[in-house]
Amino acid sequence: MVQTRTVQLIIFCLLIISMQVLIQLEASTDSGDYVVLESLKEEWENVPPTWDGSDPCDDPWEGIDCNNSRVISIKLSSINLKGELSGDIEGLSELQILDLSYNKGLTGSLPQSIGNLKSLSILILVGCGFSGLIPNTIGSLSQLEFLSLNLNNFIGPIPASVGNLSKLRWLDLADNKLSGPLPISRGSTPGLDMLVHTKHFHLGRNQFSGEIPDQLFSSNMTLKHLLLEQNQLTGKIPSSLGLVQTLEVVRLDRNSLDGTIPSTLKSLTLMSELFLSNNKFTGPLPNLAGMNALNYLDMSNNTFSSADFPQWFSSLQSLTTLYPSLSCFRFIS
């Protein structure tokens, strides 16, 4: 009798093990990816209630997208996540999109291992509470097209390795506490000047210092937005800025730039908005004749040498907003 019960118990245990194996075989989520998601789940507070079960792909976890059993996307914006971004994230080797935006409770530094996400094309961490240095390994994300780290508490320099992101279209590091010079390439060291396919440099409201390097700009660039407002930049506007014929919006306001405005700016005929206010510019007002798309121009709070009304103003047919206003100029008949 005892022997019969023992045999039955063994058979029961084997059935349980077989069922567990069968469940694992039927699960469509890669086991390694599942382990990583479980690690993130343990690290974070306020994960979605659907983050339960052992198959995030087939029994979908909110914010998780998969392809052929692999996790390719995590989109968890504005759900009050709290915690840190674990270095285990590197285990999601097929991850293409990581969007954790507007979760103020996500704090701490970005892990160095984030650079191992070789398939990542979109990284959006805007409006979180991340701090510390931006890891240099971010320059290893060779597929990255969209990088948005704005509205955090990052400090230190822009990693020169960002210049290696040859597919990058959007760079937004605004509203942090970043400092130091704008990095440009030197020898084998990369820099921002190498990002010739990037459409947006959003670097405003930081603590960048030093001059805007002349080497930063070239005719190969395809920039549309150059936003450098509210930093601690000094020196002159480089004449090479006029080489970037694709520019539509330039913000250099609220720095400590000085000297005269380079005449090369007038070649930027696609420019619609130009902000030069609150600097230390001197000399005559720049001649912007030919900038026919310009509709917003702010040159206020500088020390230009002439208050005479420039005749070329009347040629700017698209201009709707001007600072200082026309009342500040002396008209010459």
Score class of each variant (00 low, 15 high):
L15C: 10
L15Y: 13
Q20N: 11
V21T: 10
G32P: 07
V36Q: 01
V36F: 02
K41E: 00
K41T: 01
W44H: 14
V47N: 13
P48E: 07
D59T: 15
S73F: 03
K75I: 03
L81R: 01
S86D: 07
G87N: 04
D88C: 03
S93L: 00
E94K: 01
D99T: 10
N116Y: 03
L120E: 08
S121H: 10
I124P: 03
G127H: 14
F130P: 10
L147V: 11
N150Q: 15
P159E: 15
P159F: 12
A160V: 12
A160W: 08
G163A: 09
N164L: 09
D172F: 07
A174C: 03
S185A: 06
L195I: 04
L195Y: 05
V196H: 09
V196S: 09
H197C: 02
H200M: 11
Q230S: 13
Q230G: 12
I237Y: 14
S240K: 01
T246S: 15
V249W: 15
I261K: 05
P262M: 03
S263Y: 05
S263N: 05
T264C: 01
T269L: 08
E273Y: 07
E273C: 06
F275T: 07
T282D: 08
M291P: 02
L294C: 03
N295L: 09
M299C: 05
S300A: 14
N301L: 08
P310C: 00
W312S: 00
W312M: 00
S318E: 08
T321L: 09
L322D: 13
Y323A: 14
S325N: 14
S325W: 07
F329T: 05
